[in-house]
Amino acid sequence: MRYVARVGEREFRIEVAPRGGGRFTISLDGKTREIERRGDGVLHLLSIDGGAREVTVVRDTGGPGGAGNGRPAAQREAVYCVTVAGRPYDVRLLDPLRCQGAAARPAVEGPIEVRAIMPGKIAALLMGEGQAVRSGQGVIVVEAMKMENELAAPKDGRITRIRVRPGDTVEAGAALFTVE
């Protein structure tokens, strides 16, 4: 199996060849290594180059609060929340079968839809349709868990659509606004 894996700014090209019994031959950026995965479930030991690292791997299903929100759907990769020795890493895996035709590097072009990460009530709109926004600028205030949270624009651009009004109750995943 071949993947492009992104961790922060770093990018790795990985090929995984299963050998059975939890053994894999990995080719990472051209270097070949033998890997053994021990233990079932989420928490396991990964034996690499003779040293064992404790890792947990959980597929981010893109649900509320997940790292998959605010990115263009066409370029959505699989996101895995990994910990190595207790430290968290978000790994974005690009699977060649799922990004045919798309450039390997996701661009922040085109409209991006921002969705509610949790059920809540719209407390206020800070911007209006047609207004220009900078990445990180607050657009909508959502009240949830008894606290008000500002939802920010995911990139620089213009707000092309706002789908909610103050007082509306929204479910997790509901589309709130679009930045283009």
């Binding site: 770093r10 990995i26 890997i35 890792v55 597929r59 895995y80 990994v82 790994v91």
Partner: peptide, 17 residues
Amino acid sequence: VGPEAEVAAIAAAVRAT
């Protein structure tokens, strides 16, 4: 990003496989 991004990437690729 921590020092073991490479191990994390491998772990994710193994899981995906």
